[in-house]
């Protein structure tokens, strides 16, 4: 990989997560592995139910247990396994070293506390600041995330702000303690397009200025092209493809990635209807033979129905899980990852 010299900040290795529901066991994440380097922006793309949000919650150790259970794997943060940490130790990491912003800015703020005090909260919690000092810092943070009139806005309540403003407040909250990793779980889905662009610009700017590693979870390749250096494509809890983002747009390898990129609306195109991927994500409780994508795949072969392909490195920094590339690959990327399947 291109960033080989740097130590990875976060290493997810062979992570599997099950949910025990009334309908049966859902394998939400299957043998997921990826690395995240300091200051990098990584996009995780996939349809609903592909396990992208669950993976990020797992890193924060916020999977509700029961019903969720991390079955196997390691999550190494600075080389230490987060899964071995006690709940108490995790409290010091969440919001301090690893932070998260959510999809719904409308409901992500406590309605009865002022925005300023909610930002100040995490400073008081993690940095041991006094209330007054923290409120001052909160005001500055609000200025940093581009909220005009911050000295007045700190004392306003969430309902007095617009959606974009609330998302800015959320970002300020998440960044208050200068975390090393920021998970953004579809941060712009609930916002309209112009605000979306502003928020993405803001995230990009903060990534540059503070060297915060960003994990952008989204189903929107448009967002990925705006901001991410590297992309993971996930489907049914598995990695389907990993690639630098310029390359994936020019030359997607996996048929699923191709389908996703094809379904981005193009201004230049005068098409009647958007192209889509036929079918839907398979029922997660069903056990599938072979590759989990073959029923929807336009290029499915016989072997796809029988056996699940393994993840192959096809070139520097690119991995793909598909039988189409099985022949050309030199070796599997991570032997322990796939051997059991």
């Amino acid at each position: 990989m291109g960033t080989e010299k740097k130590e990875p900040l976060l290493q997810v290795k062979d992570l599997s997560i099950d949910f025990h529901t009334a309908e049966g066991v859902v394998h939400a994440v299957n043998h997921l592995s990826f690395d995240l380097y300091p200051g990098e922006t990584l996009g995780i793309v996939g349809e609903s139910g592909s396990g992208k949000s669950v993976s990020s919650l797992a890193v924060m150790r916020l999977i509700p247990d029961p019903p969720g259970k991390i079955v196997s794997g390691e999550i190494l943060f600075h080389g230490k396994n987060l899964l071995d940490y006690s709940e108490k130790e995790m409290l010091k990491i969440r919001g301090n070293l690893i932070s998260m912003i959510f999809q719904e800015p409308m409901t992500s703020l406590n309605p009865i506390l002022t925005c300023g005090s909610q930002i100040a909260e995490s400073l008081m919690l993690h940095k041991g600041m006094k209330k007054k000092e923290a409120m001052k810092a909160a005001e500055q943070l609000m200025r940093d995330v581009g909220i005009a009139n911050a000295e007045k806005r700190v004392n306003e309540y969430p309902h007095q702000m617009s959606g974009g403003m609330k998302q800015r407040v959320m970002i300020a909250m998440a960044l208050a303690c200068e975390p090393e990793i920021l998970f953004c779980d579809e941060p712009t889905t609930a916002l309209d397009v112009t605000i979306q662009a502003q928020i993405l610009d803001l995230i990009k700017k903060l990534n540059r200025e503070r060297n915060t590693a960003i994990v952008m979870i989204t189903h929107d390749f448009g967002v990925v092209s705006e901001i991410c250096e590297r992309v993971l494509v996930m489907y049914t809890g598995r990695i389907f493809e990993e690639a630098p983002s310029q390359k994936i747009f020019k030359m997607p390898k996996h048929p699923y990635t191709e389908g996703l990129i094809d379904s981005i609306p193009q201004i230049s195109d005068v098409r009647e209807a958007l192209s889509t991927i036929e079918g839907t994500v398979p029922n997660p409780t069903e056990k599938l033979e072979g590759c989990s994508f073959w029923p929807r795949c336009s290029r499915a072969m016989d072997i796809c129905k029988r056996e699940d392909p393994s993840v192959k490195i096809i070139e520097e920094g690119r991995r793909v899980r598909c039988w189409l590339y099985e022949g050309s690959a030199e070796d599997t990327i991570n032997p322990d990852e796939e051997s059991v399947e």
Binding site: S99, L125, H126, M173
Partner: peptide, 17 residues
Amino acid sequence: ENQYIEAAEALGASKFR
């Protein structure tokens, strides 16, 4: 069930808090 509870968890607030 509100998301601000999840957000508070993600910011490292303890259960008691």
